[in-house]
Amino acid sequence: MAFPIVRHRRLRASAGIRGMVRETVLNPLDLIQPIFVTYGTGIKREIASMPGVYHFSLDTLKEEVDEIVSLGIPAVLLFGIPETKDAVGSSGFDENGIVQEATRLIKEWYPELLVVADTCLCEFTDHGHCGMVHTHTVDGIVHGDVMNDASLELLTRTAVSQAKAGADIIAPSNMMDGFVQAIRAGLDEAGFEHVPIMSYSVKYASAFYGPFREAADSAPQFGDRKTYQMDPANVREAIREAESDVLEGADMLMVKPALAYMDVIRVIREQFDLPLVAYNVSGEYSMVKAAAQQGWINEKAIVLELLTGLKRAGADTIITYHSKDAVRWLRGE
Rank of each mutant, 00 (worst) to 15 (best):
Y279C: 06
P275A: 08
M287N: 05
V235E: 11
R312A: 14
L247N: 14
P211E: 07
V288S: 11
A315R: 01
V235L: 14
N298D: 15
S282C: 10
F272I: 05
D217A: 15
V246Q: 12
V277L: 14
M254E: 01
E214L: 02
E299P: 00
G249S: 09
V235H: 14
Q294G: 11
A290S: 13
E243C: 03
D224H: 01
E243H: 15
Y228E: 13
K226W: 02
V288M: 12
D245R: 06
R312D: 00
S218G: 13
A292F: 04
G314I: 05
R312E: 03
R236V: 10
L307W: 07
K311C: 05
L247F: 09
F272H: 08
T317L: 15
E243D: 14
M254R: 07
Q293A: 15
R269D: 11
P220A: 12
A315F: 09
E248S: 13
T317D: 00
D245P: 08
D224E: 08
I297S: 05
L310Q: 12
A315N: 02
E237F: 04
I318F: 08
N234M: 13
R225T: 09
A301P: 01
A238L: 08
M230V: 10
V264W: 01
A292P: 01
V303Q: 06
Q221S: 10
R266V: 00
Q229R: 09
G283A: 12
T320D: 08
M252H: 07
E248V: 04
D217G: 07
T227D: 13
V235P: 00
D263C: 11
I265R: 12
N234T: 14
